[in-house]
Computed example of a mutant assay.
Amino acid sequence: MCSAPIALMLADVIAKGDPRVTDDADRAPTVGEAVHDSGRDRVGHVMGHEGPYVQLRPLAGGQEWDAGPGRLRILTQSELLSALLAEVSARSRQPS
């Protein structure tokens, strides 16, 4: 079964796009943006900045992790959509 927060994010991205996703992928990510952490090969939303690190949380929620800003890349619209679809698919395969 699809979790409500992921389903709502997915519906918003499909309907109107995510205003936090831009074509300017070379700038530092801001709070709320979806990024790829190449150090952990994971995607997440930026939750904040602490010292030299950026705090990230999985798209579907969960435990935050710290990442170096040099390892982050802001997701494109299609990458965010793919990541959200992958999350929905993974959750639908989990036993209830």
Rank of each mutant, 00 (worst) to 15 (best):
C2H: 11
A4P: 02
A4F: 03
P5M: 10
P5G: 08
I6V: 15
I6N: 02
I6A: 01
A7K: 15
L10D: 02
A11K: 14
V13L: 09
V13W: 09
K16C: 12
K16P: 03
K16E: 14
G17W: 05
D18M: 00
D18H: 03
P19L: 10
P19T: 10
R20E: 11
R20Y: 14
R20T: 12
V21F: 00
D24P: 00
D24R: 11
D24Q: 09
D24E: 15
A25I: 13
A25D: 13
A25S: 13
A25T: 13
R27M: 05
R27C: 02
R27Y: 02
A28E: 04
A28N: 01
A28Y: 04
T30D: 12
V31H: 04
E33R: 11
A34C: 12
A34W: 04
A34F: 06
V35Y: 10
V35G: 05
H36D: 09
H36K: 06
H36V: 06
D37A: 05
S38F: 12
G39E: 13
G39I: 05
G39W: 14
G39D: 14
G39V: 08
D41T: 08
R42V: 12
V43T: 06
V43H: 05
H49R: 15
H49W: 15
E50P: 06
G51R: 09
G51L: 09
P52A: 06
Y53K: 09
Y53P: 04
V54W: 02
V54I: 05
V54Y: 02
V54T: 03
Q55W: 11
Q55K: 08
Q55N: 10
Q55G: 00
L56S: 11
L56N: 06
L56I: 11
P58F: 00
L59P: 02
L59A: 07
A60N: 10
G61W: 01
G61R: 03
G62W: 14
G62H: 11
G62Q: 12
G62F: 14
E64S: 10
E64Y: 01
W65M: 11
W65Y: 03
D66R: 15
D66K: 14
P69I: 06
R71K: 10
R71N: 13
R71V: 10
L72K: 09
R73A: 11
R73E: 11
R73G: 05
I74L: 02
I74W: 05
L75E: 09
L75N: 09
L75R: 01
L75Q: 10
T76A: 13
T76R: 08
Q77S: 15
Q77F: 08
S78Q: 11
S78H: 12
E79K: 01
E79H: 03
L80D: 06
L80W: 02
L81K: 07
L81Q: 09
L81Y: 14
S82Y: 03
A83P: 12
L84Q: 01
L85C: 10
L85S: 10
L85T: 08
E87Q: 02
V88F: 01
S89N: 13
S89A: 15
A90D: 04
A90F: 00
R91C: 02
R91G: 04
S92V: 02
S92W: 00
S92L: 07
S92M: 07
R93A: 03
R93S: 04
R93W: 03
P95H: 04
S96M: 10
S96Q: 13
